[in-house]
């Protein structure tokens, strides 16, 4: 087989490769430094340098987290917060994609809708929270709407830009080849816009979590934000840290989900094709 020749052929390049390999073997694994940091944190807590009222120790946080998980408090808070994000995100996403497709595909839609949307986009939407309380009270509605708004703009911009950046050469080619307008939209415009839409989706999810956290700081009587606020009153830094970790895990989880969708939806791209084949 051709492999027999391999050692002879690679010998010339060998020094460079092995040098690099050697260097790499001295590199510490990426998970090592976070672990060391957590150990240092624990050490500071155990020796009393870090007081519990300032920040609870990792062991304490883990214990409380486990406890909250077992007694159902955490699950209940998660369910409430998760519902807020899910509903808000769904509303925001549907509106964003519908608006993005309309402004992307139609000149009239672009002229009428894009400028007000661009204007609204410049408002710091998290700052709208007080206004929402005036308008919608302190129940679920202002929280859901805040999440929806956080989702709306990044996803709208991604969809719009993706459609606007359609390759004119592909449109021309498909016109000569006899595609109908519907076929062009279905097979050229929308698939071409997908990549940028997914970038927007990722940003939108990040914003949705952020909006949830801000929304829940105000007058919540259930959910993760309530759990954290409640803990603050009793100086329970352990519970606060548990809440923060849960937020982080949720954000990370949604990011993993979008990456998975990206990998599936963009499998036509050579790099992704290669990775999905080898894995």
């Amino acid at each position: 087989m051709a492999l027999t020749y391999a050692p002879v052929r690679t010998r010339a390049q060998r020094p460079a490769i092995s040098a690099r390999k050697k260097k790499r073997s001295f590199l510490p694994p990426r998970w090592l430094s976070p672990i060391v940091l957590i150990l240092l944190w624990q050490l500071a807590s155990s020796t009393g340098v870090l007081h519990e009222d300032t920040l609870a120790s990792p062991v304490k946080v883990a214990g409380v987290g486990w406890e909250l998980l077992l007694n159902g408090e955490l699950i209940e808070a998660l369910a409430v917060s998760g519902q807020r994000v899910a509903i808000g995100f769904l509303i925001g996403a549907v509106v964003a994609i519908v608006l993005g497709v309309i402004t992307g595909l139609s000149r009239v839609g672009d002229a009428v809708l894009d400028s007000p949307l661009q204007m609204l986009r410049t408002l710091p939407f998290l700052g709208l929270s007080p206004l929402f309380i005036v308008w919608f009270g302190i129940d679920e509605l202002p929280k859901v709407i805040l999440v929806a708004l956080g989702t709306l703009f990044p996803l709208y911009l991604g969809t719009y830009a993706g459609i606007r950046n359609t390759d004119a050469k592909l449109i021309e080619a498909t016109r000569v080849l006899g595609f109908t307008r519907t076929e062009q939209i279905l097979h050229v415009v929308l698939p071409g816009a997908l990549q940028q839409t997914l970038v927007g989706l990722r940003q939108a999810l990040g914003m949705a979590w952020l909006a949830l956290i801000i929304g829940e700081q105000v007058n919540a009587n259930a959910g993760l934000g309530f759990m954290i606020n409640n803990a603050r009153e009793f100086l329970r830094t352990d519970v606060i840290v548990v809440g923060l970790i849960v937020y982080a895990v949720l954000g990370l989880g949604s990011d993993v989900l979008v990456r998975f969708i990206e990998r599936r939806a963009l499998q036509w791209q050579p790099v992704l094709t290669r990775t999905s084949r080898s894995s």
Binding site: L170, E172, A173, T174, V176, L177, H187, V188, Q269
Partner: peptide
């Protein structure tokens, strides 16, 4: 027509 760049739809 066939073009200088093949102009295939990369996602199909």
């Amino acid at each position: 027509m066939a073009f200088q760049e093949p102009r295939l739809l990369p996602w199909r």
